[in-house]
């Protein structure tokens, strides 16, 4: 960075035909005008209320709760562990655990509220959820004339099926589904093994008892 270089005199302007730049400019805008009538790829406008642009799988705004099967209540993956509630930076999640009459946990939420007027769409809740339950939604038409109730989403509005998740983000949903399936199979296999072992134990016990009985008889004979 020497000082001399800063003093570089202005280079002589390149000579062009006078008015050529103006004509080039007119040609560019004229081309845009003419081609807009027959080139589909030039007109990128989507007529919004009638049509909608497809949203990217990376698009996210407010969270939703995923459930398996057809029943939003029985199939809900959420166990009301409240990890998301604790991690949420603006603290917009409110969870109450559902209990039976004896006070025993039912491992499901009685209340699950998200205040989307507070939510900042960070996606931390979806990242920390160990039960594959909470994901970021793609819905963006949430305006309402009810400032308080309309922006407080309860379980009824938050619960969405696994099929919806599959439609919204196929890649993520497939990965989750396969992992869950594998886990379930593993669990089933473990349960089966456990049952088989219990059965074997039982049989062995019975056999031993039978043998003991037989020897006792023998002893009696002896």
């Amino acid at each position: 960075m020497n000082q001399d270089k800063m003093e570089t005199p202005a280079a002589p302007a390149r000579w062009t035909w006078p008015g050529l730049g103006l004509l080039q400019g007119l040609a560019v805008s004229g081309k845009n005008f003419v081609q807009s009538f027959y080139k589909k790829e030039r007109m990128t406008t989507v007529q919004y209320p009638e049509e909608r642009a497809p949203i990217s799988p990376n698009f996210r705004n407010f969270p939703f709760l995923c459930y398996d099967g057809d029943d939003p209540k029985a199939g809900l993956r959420c166990t009301a562990c409240t990890i998301c509630e604790k991690e949420c930076p603006p603290q917009c999640i409110y969870i109450v655990l559902d209990r039976d009459e004896n006070g025993k946990s039912l491992k499901r939420p009685k209340v699950f509220d998200i205040d989307i007027s507070v939510c900042m769409n960070c996606g931390i809740c979806a990242e920390v959820c160990p039960f594959d339950s909470i994901y970021m939604d793609g819905e963006y038409e949430l305006s309402t004339d009810d400032r308080f109730g309309g922006l407080m989403l309860g379980l009824d509005r938050l619960s969405k099926s696994a099929d919806y998740h599959m439609k919204l983000r196929p890649e993520q949903a497939t990965e989750v589904m396969e992992r869950r399936k594998a886990e379930e199979e593993k669990k089933a296999a473990a349960a089966a093994a456990k049952a088989a072992k219990a059965k074997a134990d039982q049989e062995a016990k019975e056999k031993a008892a039978a043998e003991a009985g037989a020897s006792g008889e023998k002893g009696d004979e002896a």
């Binding site: 960075m1 020497n2 270089k5 800063m6 570089t8 202005a10 280079a11 302007a13 000579w15 006078p18």
Partner: peptide, 17 residues
């Protein structure tokens, strides 16, 4: 007009060299 009004070639103090 071309002589008087054509803008000088832009030289950058720090970006060049």
């Amino acid at each position: 007009f071309n002589k008087r009004l054509a803008p000088a070639t832009r030289t950058y103090r720090f970006a060049d060299s």
